[in-house]
């Protein structure tokens, strides 16, 4: 009996406990304690009302140039190093130069961690950085045990820069939106000192409202949903906990570089297909 109870606790699915908990809420919602002055905006306890679309839905999406303009303003506010490029090659050159300039050696080696992602692959970072004796580690899409995960994080710690892409970028707040996929660990955008991200202009959305509507629509994106983990990143990690002095680089990256590729070539892969792990190295 005790073991059964313990097992239930582990699964957290003790139906009795859950039932009791929710019943307490139900009876509270129907409690006759309304004799005293209720707030003016008293509401009915109707269940699961219609999901309404907000006024935000009426806002225009914005043309690409407009979105870029908004992105530039937001990036400047957040100290994001934003650069616009005509081609992946140009972005790759620029990023390689930044890495060569900024990446300090760790334990005598210079390393960069990069996502297994088609757009990132087209930056050709390994070739570009070989001359500067900087090693690129591409993340593999392997099912990991806890022990191999620890090793992965230890290696990632040695990388000075983490290179990722993103699912979307919200122009108004310069927010990168990343959903969890094999080969694209969220730790790459977290553990290294510098986070460099590359996106195509077509991945720009106007704002958070648009993202929320997109993800809750019935269309493809709505069905795919948020996955089991979705991360939104707006600028480098920061804190103001000591006398309200703003310091960048609290626990995560101290700098964020964002490379936007404006004209997507015809053979550019859709961001959705990037989710499927491929073997490129």
């Amino acid at each position: 009996m005790k073991r059964l109870k313990a097992a239930r606790t582990e699964t957290g699915a003790d139906p009795v406990q859950r039932h009791r908990f929710l019943n307490r809420i139900r009876s509270a919602l129907n409690h006759p304690n309304s004799g005293r002055g209720a707030p003016a905006a008293a509401h009915a306890t109707s269940k699961a009302g219609p999901h309404h679309q907000g006024a935000a839905g009426a806002r225009p999406c914005g043309r690409p140039e407009e979105l870029l303009q908004r992105l530039q303003e937001a990036a400047a506010e957040l100290n994001i190093h934003l650069s616009l490029h005509d081609s992946p090659a140009s972005a790759g050159r620029c990023m390689a130069a930044m890495i060569t300039r900024k990446a300090p050696p760790r334990n005598g080696r210079r390393e960069v961690a990069i996502w297994r992602h088609p757009l990132v692959a087209r930056l050709e970072l390994p070739q570009r950085l070989a001359g500067a004796a900087i090693t690129c580690r591409t993340t593999a899409a392997a099912d990991r045990t806890y022990a191999t995960r620890r090793r992965f994080y230890r290696d990632l710690e040695a990388a000075a820069v983490g290179v990722t892409s993103a699912d979307y970028c919200l122009a108004d707040t310069a927010t990168l939106v990343m959903r969890s996929r094999p080969g694209q660990p969220r730790s790459v955008s977290l553990l290294p000192d510098i986070h460099a991200a590359v996106i195509e202009a077509g991945q720009l959305l106007p704002d958070f409202s648009r993202l929320c509507r997109l993800l809750s629509s019935g269309a493809d994106e709505g069905k795919r949903g948020l996955t089991h983990c979705m991360t939104l990143i707006s600028g480098p990690s920061k804190t103001a906990d000591i006398e309200a002095v703003m310091v960048e680089g609290a626990h995560g990256p101290r700098a964020l570089y964002l490379y936007v590729i404006l004209a997507a070539p015809i053979d550019a892969p859709q961001p959705e297909t990037s989710g499927k792990p491929r073997t490129t190295s």
């Binding site: 937001a74 919200l170 108004d172 707040t173 927010t175 958070f208 948020l226 996955t227 089991h228 983990c229 979705m230 991360t231 939104l232 990143i233 707006s234 600028g235 480098p236 990690s237 920061k238 995560g252």
Partner: peptide, 12 residues
């Protein structure tokens, strides 16, 4: 305008 990081977590 937006928190620096927002994580949506739905499971292990």
């Amino acid at each position: 305008k937006m928190a620096g990081y927002i994580s949506y977590i739905g499971g292990p």
